[in-house]
Nucleic acid binder design. Structure first.
Lengths: 215, 215
DNA sequence: TGAAAAACAGTGGTATACCACTAGAGCTAT
DNA sequence: ATAGCTCTAGTGGTATACCACTGTTTTTCA
């Protein structure tokens, strides 16, 4: 593929040099991502925020709360994608970050592949949650479900209907015929479902749906 | 689509006229399937077996055991596809029929769509089990699992590995790279998995795998 | 009753899965 | 040691899913 596409401009804000080093080396050989800014204190990176497509943000910065920072950055730069990269693997933190506009959430032991995928995915406007993060939310969702408060994404009636048919091995075409709607409509619903569930493809959608108890 | 393809030649053997009538009317308007033979006793249909692509076979024939019949027909006409169409929704019968070479198993309350799909699927050489049948086998598989005897399809080490990666939302390409094998190989494994699990697509594979406890 | 949400539908792609078929290499258990 | 798996890999195609983007109509409910 010969294309002169723009590299994704990434920034890092993290207390620990070692983390920054790790990310830099992970992304060094990647030709679709360039780290244009890295800092251990927010003062150093804030003047460059407007240049960034994606920022990797830690939660436990020594002087300020990353959760608040997330909200602040997101309101100042709505187009900036924020990926939380942290060692806090706690549902409360994850939910707080997502509520405050974070586009991704990764555990610090993330593999290079996943880091790259997270950056590319959020850059494209989709949410990306690390594997452990997803599992944690699902587990939490099932538990809190009984407590009337759940992280289970709210699906509309039609979406649930279509989700069930997808799990039932029907193709979009078959679903369209069954529900007397057009193929496009089914595809649209499917895209929305995929986004709401945070799935990357059919396999993920089915897995998440079943684990959420939606099937 | 303008094509002069051969219709699938189907036969029915069932005690009850009403069932035969139902199948005939279900398939009457279908232009890819033609019912060329229907009978309430085996003597009437056996001379025509060699003409058939697919036969719908009941289990509880008044004079003879359909399970044995299945084995007999299959050995005489290996290319004949046998779909068991019965009101016996019991695991023991289902297993017996499948052991004896049946290609499909449907409950008699089957919808027209599913009947057609079953015929087309088995005609193409794939196994087709009705929805209720599948669920029953899965449930049974999970229960008997504890008793050291299970209907869970035996997957090879590599197949399990690949199945897990599929459920983990990886594409064939990504799996190939991860396992250092070619895309073709992954596709082959995927096809085998799909067949072993009796799934029609990724969605089904994931659903069945999770319900079998393979994930 | 008016705004928001949901459902519907299209265009125009690209990526991926699905499928039938063949076939060699390596291992493995009677 | 040989028949039968398992794993590997290919060809060449078709079907389906994926995706961004835009827009209209219908329903819901504050």
């Amino acid at each position: 593929m010969i294309s002169v596409k723009q590299k994704i401009k990434v920034g890092i804000l993290d207390d620990h040099h070692i983390v920054i080093q790790g990310v830099l080396s992970s992304l060094a050989n990647n030709n679709s991502i360039s780290v244009v800014s890295a800092a251990t204190a927010k003062e150093y990176i804030e003047p460059e925020l407007h240049l960034l497509d994606v920022i990797l943000l830690d939660i436990n910065l020594n002087d300020v709360d990353g959760v608040d920072l997330c909200k602040k950055y997101k309101s100042e730069f709505p187009n900036l994608k924020i990926i939380c990269l942290t060692s806090f693997l706690q549902v409360s933190f994850i939910k707080a970050m997502l509520r405050n506009g974070a586009d991704g959430y990764l555990f610090k032991n993330v593999a290079t592949d996943e880091l790259i995928e997270a950056i590319e995915t959020t850059y494209k406007g989709k949410r990306y949650l690390g594997k452990e993060v997803n599992e944690l939310l699902i587990k939490d969702g099932m538990e809190t479900n009984k407590n009337r408060r759940s992280f289970i994404p709210k699906l509309t009636r039609r979406e649930k209907e279509i989700l069930a048919l997808i799990i039932d091995e029907m193709t979009n075409q078959q679903i369209a015929e069954k529900l007397f709607i057009s193929l496009s409509t089914v595809e649209t619903h499917r895209m929305n479902l995929s986004a709401k569930l945070g799935a990357k493809n059919t396999a993920g959608m089915v897995r998440i749906a079943i684990k959420f108890g939606l099937a």
